[in-house]
Design a protein around this nucleic acid. Structure first.
Lengths: 211, 211
DNA sequence: ATAATTAAATAGGGATCGCTATTTTAATGG
DNA sequence: CCATTAAAATAGCGATCCCTATTTAATTAT
C-alpha cells in the first residue's frame, strides 16, 4: 500500500489513509451533518485546500471514509458468514461480533453505518441514499447466507429468508441505536440471545434473570 | 384548549399548536440538525422574532414539537399496553400500531423519536440526551407491562423483562430505520411476526414464504 | 381620539458553513 | 544554480447558521 517512491514536488504532509482514519472517526461520532469541514481539517492538521485537493468534497470524503471504515471495522465479519460454520452458529458469532464493534472502549459508540443519516436535510439526500444502500447490501449478505442454509437443510424449505434477514437487520440497527444511547456490551449480547430464539426451529430458552 | 377571549394588543398570527405541528413535521422528516430556523419560520409563515418569542429557541421548539408529536402520534399506544388484553396480544397490537405509524402515507417515514439524534455535533449533546431519555422511557413502559405479565402468570417467573423490553425496543428502532430507508408497512409487519416468535414459550411458526 | 398593551415586521449581527483563487513552499531533474 | 513539478498555506468568497435590538402595526381600555 505504501508508496515511498520519492517523486518531484513538495511532499505530502498527510498520508491518505491517516486522513481517512481521522475523518471516519469524526463522522462516526458526529454523523455527516454534525461534522464540519473546519473540524475535519483541524483534526487532520491540514488547511481546507488540502482537504479538497485530496478528497474532492465533504460528501466524497464521507464516501471514502465509509469505505475505509467498513474495511477496517467489519472486514472480517463477512468471513464469519462465508465460513463453513452451521448457519445458526455463524449468525450468532456475526451478531456478537457486531455487538463488540458497537461497544469498543476507545471508539465512538454504535455503528458508523447502521443508524447513519436516517433523518437529513434535503440537500443531503444523496448521502442518505449512500448509507441506505450499504444497509441494504448488508441485509442481502445475511439473506444469501440464509438461502444457503435452506439449500443445506439447516432451515426448512420455504423459509422467508428475506424477512428473516431484515429481522436480524433490525436487531443490528437497534443495537447500534442503543449503543449510541450508552448501552453496554453485555446488554447487547443478552438482546442478541433473545433474537436468536427467533431462529426457525429454536425453542425459547433465554431471557431469564440469573436468580 | 382554545382561548378565543380577546385580550389587549395585536392578535397572534399563528396558533401555538399549528406552529408545533408544522415544526414537528419538519423535524420528523429532516431531524434536528437537518432543519434550519429559516425553514421553520418560512413553513410557519412567520418571521424569526416571532418564532423566538413564541418558542424560545430552536432546541426549546424541538422539545415542544416532540411533546406535541408524541401526544398526537402515539398517545393511544400507551392504552394498548395498559389495557386488559393478554400481554402477548397487547404487545402484538402495540408493535403493529408502531409499524402503521412508521409508514403513514402523508407523513415522514419512520419514527420521530426512535432513531433521532443518534450521531450529532458536540453542541447538540443536550438534544441527543433528550431523545435518548424518551427512548429509555418507552422501553421502561414495555418492561412494566412485561413485569405485570410475570405477576399475572403470562410469563414465567424469573423472566428477564428488562432484556425482553430492550429486545422489542431494538425491533422498534430497527423498524424506524428501515422505514426511513423506504420499507413498506407489510415488510415491517412480517418482521414483527418474526420478533413475536421470541416471546417466551412461543414456537417459531412464521417466516415462511407463501408458496 | 388617546393611551396602553401586545405581538409582528424590519433589518441585520456575529459566527460558521462548504469551498476556492491565488500565492508560497519544498522537493527533484537538468 | 535554475527550471520544473507538486503540494501546502494564505486569505477570503458568498451563503447560511441561530438569534435579536429596534421599530411598526393591531388590538382593547379609557
Amino acid at each position: 500500500m505504501e508508496e515511498p517512491v520519492r517523486k518531484r514536488g513538495r511532499p505530502r504532509v498527510l498520508n491518505r489513509d491517516a486522513g481517512l482514519e481521522i475523518a471516519a472517526r469524526l463522522f462516526w461520532e458526529r454523523g455527516y451533518e454534525g461534522t464540519s469541514t473546519a473540524e475535519l481539517t483541524k483534526a487532520m492538521g491540514i488547511n481546507p485546500p488540502t482537504l479538497y485537493s485530496n478528497f474532492g468534497s465533504k460528501e466524497e470524503l464521507y464516501r471514502q471514509a465509509l469505505d475505509f471504515s467498513i474495511a477496517r471495522e467489519s472486514g472480517c465479519r463477512a468471513q464469519i458468514l462465508a465460513s463453513a460454520l452451521p448457519a445458526y452458529e455463524a449468525l450468532s458469532r456475526y451478531l456478537y461480533n457486531i455487538a463488540d464493534g458497537d461497544t469498543q472502549p476507545d471508539k465512538p459508540a454504535g455503528c458508523m453505518v447502521s443508524t447513519a443519516v436516517l433523518q437529513h436535510a434535503e440537500e443531503n439526500a444523496s448521502v442518505a441514499r449512500m448509507t441506505a444502500e450499504l444497509r441494504e447490501a448488508s441485509m442481502q449478505v445475511l439473506k444469501a447466507r440464509f438461502d444457503r442454509a435452506v439449500s443445506e437443510d439447516e432451515l426448512p424449505a420455504g423459509t422467508d429468508t428475506d424477512t428473516l434477514a431484515r429481522f436480524y437487520g433490525a436487531i443490528i440497527q437497534g443495537m447500534s441505536a442503543q449503543a449510541c444511547d450508552g448501552a453496554c456490551n453485555a446488554l447487547l449480547k443478552r438482546l442478541i440471545d433473545v433474537a436468536l430464539t427467533a431462529w426457525p426451529g429454536k425453542r425459547t430458552t433465554v431471557a431469564r434473570n440469573s436468580d
